[in-house]
């Protein structure tokens, strides 16, 4: 997948607002076919970075190339191959859906027969057929978001920048939008910013976490999950009567860092066995189970959760700044 040519190339990108560095030296390359999830706490610099990629803000330093076009030197060509859903999906409330999409197609110089085809296609893709003649201001949040998506993809851009595309949608709508993003991913580079971590697992082939304007993690969602303290942790549920003091036994296994115990109401105990540096301990735990002859109700390995990684990497903020 990474062998395809890069559609987005960012080198040494920085943006200063007065003395404050909102984005501080970002390097990033996104090839076609990749859906990149851009994660970070609020104020980490996600939106500022996206605004620079789309040419809305001029960088303080660094360069951005979109499908070979330098955003600073050839802004119009770069924007022509780029679709953008700004944060909050701003739209013209007085225009009808059809009028608005027609305007976007016109500005993007999609003319004649092709305009009709493209408009029909996106209206069908995002499901706007029922509201074409309605002023955008009267639409529900879900419909507005879909109109925002439609304007971003009407010209079949090779690069798609979506700032929180599912923010404020209900679970069904979120599912629809994610399906759409996955379907569009094939030969495009798509960057979505989000703070919903399940979304990253659902649609992204790669996740980048930024904090204080810098990239602090970059990998597939699975690679990032491996950095969680809970990666390869084992969950074991056994009857309390049989394994009253299993905590000590589990702790003595090789590679085990610590063990937590939850007493369940029905006479069972649930142990979470956390390994040192994510080494695999499932074999050792099941060996112990066999040796003691416990009747196991649950035994499974945790893949690690993105939120844990996210918190571990970006959670320094409160404690760090108080110090």
């Amino acid at each position: 997948m990474r062998s395809s040519p890069a559609l987005i190339e960012i080198h040494g990108l920085s943006k200063h607002f007065g003395p404050f560095a909102a984005v501080d030296g970002i390097d990033l390359t996104v090839p076609g076919g990749e859906v990149l999830g851009f994660l970070g706490p609020n104020g980490a610099g996600k939106t500022t970075t996206m605004r620079m990629i789309t040419g809305f803000l001029a960088p303080s330093a660094g360069s951005i190339t979109i499908a070979g076009f330098d955003v600073a030197a050839a802004p119009l060509q770069a924007r022509q191959v780029l679709g953008y859903l700004p944060e909050g999906a701003p739209l013209y409330p007085d225009m009808t859906v059809a009028g608005f999409l027609g305007f976007i197609a016109e500005v993007r110089r999609i003319d004649g027969q092709r305009r009709r085809e493209r408009l029909d296609a996106v209206i069908d893709q995002v499901g706007l057929g029922d509201v074409l003649r309605q002023p955008i201001g009267t639409l529900s949040k879900g419909y507005k978001r879909r109109v925002g998506l439609a304007q971003a993809i009407v010209h079949e851009p090779r690069v798609l920048i979506l700032d929180e595309p599912t923010d404020g949608l209900d679970p069904n709508q979120k599912h629809e939008v994610r399906k759409l993003i996955r379907a569009m991913a094939r030969d495009r580079a798509i960057v979505i910013s989000t703070h919903i971590l399940e979304e990253v697992e659902a649609v992204c082939s790669r996740a980048v976490i930024i904090d204080r304007g810098r990239i602090i993690a970059d990998g597939t969602p699975d690679e990032l999950k491996a950095r969680s303290g809970y990666h390869n942790a084992v969950v074991l549920t056994v009857p309390r009567a049989q394994a009253g003091a299993a905590t000590e036994d589990l702790k003595d296994l090789p590679g085990v860092e610590r063990v937590t115990r939850d007493e369940l109401a029905d006479g069972y105990d649930r142990y979470t066995v956390i390994p040192t540096e994510s080494v695999s301990i499932a074999g050792a735990v099941s060996g112990l189970v066999r040796e003691r002859g416990w009747s196991v109700r649950e035994l499974y390995v945790l893949p690690g959760r993105l939120d844990d990684v996210f918190r571990k990497l970006t959670g320094h903020r409160q404690s760090g700044e108080a110090a």
Partner: peptide, 14 residues
């Protein structure tokens, strides 16, 4: 106010 400046000024027009 509506935030559409961002939409307008990222369209391929000077």
């Amino acid at each position: 106010k509506a935030g559409t400046t961002e939409l307008l000024l990222t369209l391929p027009l000077p």
